[in-house]
């Protein structure tokens, strides 16, 4: 029996496309963020609030993934910014090829922020690199403080945890300190922001985080050598 070593990633084709996307985003100074949560944690409302807070003419676009319907794209399109729905038709996650295809009608020259709303799912999206600069996991206080321990992969791979729906804290048995501790047990360097998209509390902190990241992406572009 002949043993042939392969030593390559199972998702090497996805990773290849994601690598190309990452390079294109870098070349154009586009900050790409991949938002992941379980269904109903509030990704779409967070994006609506975020888009509302941008001045007209802000160079931002959104790709939103769902298994079926374009409900989210219609909600987000009210902001006036470019939005595209990706319906996966059954797949429980977005992959890099879907992003590549969805981007063909936009010019990256016209953007400096691309927000991707992944399919609602805390498991599968963790495995698929979309070329993003960072993954962001959104967890609502209606869910349970042990989620980081139950779904460690996505909490390990996300740079930021947005704890959403904090206006509900008086009504649900959610121990927010324990949730923070659990997230840091899985990922000690994780940044954590608490928000309520209903009352607006904490959204200024989220916007500051976003602006700091955008500025970092822009300065990386300025410092890049001109060939």
């Amino acid at each position: 029996m002949n043993r042939v070593p392969l030593e390559k990633k199972v998702l090497s084709e996805n990773d290849r496309i994601a690598g190309e996307l990452r390079e294109r985003f870098r070349e154009h100074g586009v900050l790409c963020l991949n938002l992941i949560s379980s269904p109903g944690a509030g990704k779409t409302l967070l994006l609506e609030r975020t888009l509302e807070s941008f001045a007209p003419g802000t160079r931002v676009a959104v790709l939103t993934g769902d298994i079926q319907t374009d409900n989210d794209a219609r909600r987000l399109a009210r902001s006036g910014f470019p939005v595209r729905q990706i319906t996966t038709g059954g797949a429980c996650h977005l992959d890099a090829r879907m992003i590549e295809r969805a981007l063909t009608e936009w010019r990256l020259e016209d953007l400096d922020l691309l927000l991707i709303e992944n399919v609602g799912n805390l498991v599968c999206p963790a495995s698929y690199d979309l070329g993003e600069a960072a993954k962001i996991v959104v967890l609502s206080v209606a869910e349970g403080e042990d989620k980081p321990l139950k779904y460690p992969s996505i909490f390990f791979k996300s740079a930021l945890l947005v704890l959403n729906k904090i206006d509900l804290l008086p009504y649900v048995p959610f121990r927010i300190e324990e949730a923070r501790e659990n997230a840091r047990r899985v990922h000690p360097e994780m940044e954590i922001i608490e928000v309520s998209c209903t009352t607006g509390e904490g959204l200024d902190v989220w916007r500051q985080w976003l602006e700091a990241r955008r500025e970092a992406a822009r300065s990386e572009l300025r410092e890049a050598p001109v060939c």
Partner: peptide, 12 residues
Amino acid sequence: DELELAYLEMEE
């Protein structure tokens, strides 16, 4: 966090 193909065994 590995998700890799390690090796194949084949009869030549």
